[in-house]
């Protein structure tokens, strides 16, 4: 690129126009009017609203971020809370805290510690979810899906303050994956090659191709073994 792309830097309380930037840094309370593109990355600490799409090579957010459009970042780390209208696109997303997405999420890796609510499809290669609050998605699909209750320890009190009312549980209409290893999940239909259901699972229907391992405390309505998936047409 011939002309130099400017940086955007906000500290304190301010509003900035959207546009094409190299690096976006916001500390404090900031608002960006319109779509933002950050070639290098976007660093946010504080409370930030983007009135449009946010596109960045990398996103680092500490605090509260609201994106009123789509979010696409190759790698995102969100410590705090993010509210995105969606859809969300990226390679990896590491979440510590909470996230709310109105659309679909499509990621290669989704690592979540905390809680989330995704109104659409959560589609990721590797999903690793440790719940401290409520996790909700309409559909989850991917290669490997793992759901656990968050570790109890020194952080427990903090998490309980962030998510006071909910019991850590994942709810979804449908989960489909090559390997689905679930605990504390309330799902209507689970389909996969290898399905492992741990304590706290309440599943309406399980369809598996190769293996189903069930914890005695897992409640399963119906289970069905389907085509073994080893033949190629």
């Amino acid at each position: 690129m011939d002309h130099k792309v400017p940086d955007l830097h906000i500290s304190g309380v301010s509003t900035a126009p959207g546009g094409h930037y190299r690096q976006v840094t916001i500390e404090g309370v900031g608002k960006v009017e319109g779509n933002v593109q950050a070639d290098d990355g976007c660093k946010i600490s504080g409370i930030v609203t983007v009135r449009g799409d946010l596109q960045a090579a990398s996103l680092r957010c500490e605090g509260k971020l609201k994106v009123e459009g789509r979010l696409s970042a190759e790698s995102s780390q969100i410590d705090g809370y993010a509210d995105v209208r969606g859809p969300v696109h990226g390679e990896t997303l590491v979440l510590k805290g909470g996230m709310n997405v109105k659309g679909d999420c499509s990621l290669e890796r989704f690592d979540a510690e905390g809680g989330f609510e995704i109104d659409g499809l959560l589609n990721a290669g590797q999903l690793d979810i440790r719940l401290y609050g409520k996790g909700k998605a309409r559909e989850i699909g991917g290669e490997s899906i793992r759901v656990r209750k968050g570790v109890q320890g020194a952080w427990k009190k903090l998490w309980q303050r962030m998510f006071p009312v909910w019991n850590p549980e994942l709810t979804a209409d449908l989960i489909e994956g090559d390997e689905a290893d679930l605990e504390h999940s309330h799902v209507s239909i689970v389909r996969g090659n290898r399905v492992i259901l741990g304590p706290g699972c309440r599943i309406g229907l399980v369809e598996y191709r190769s293996e189903l391992i069930k914890h005695p405390a897992a409640k399963v309505g119906k289970e069905r073994k389907t085509g073994d998936g080893s033949h190629f047409a």
Binding site: G142, S144, G177
Partner: peptide, 9 residues
């Protein structure tokens, strides 16, 4: 399932 979702992504 994983392949199908990957191709969709």
């Amino acid at each position: 399932y994983g392949q199908l979702y990957r191709w969709k992504r």
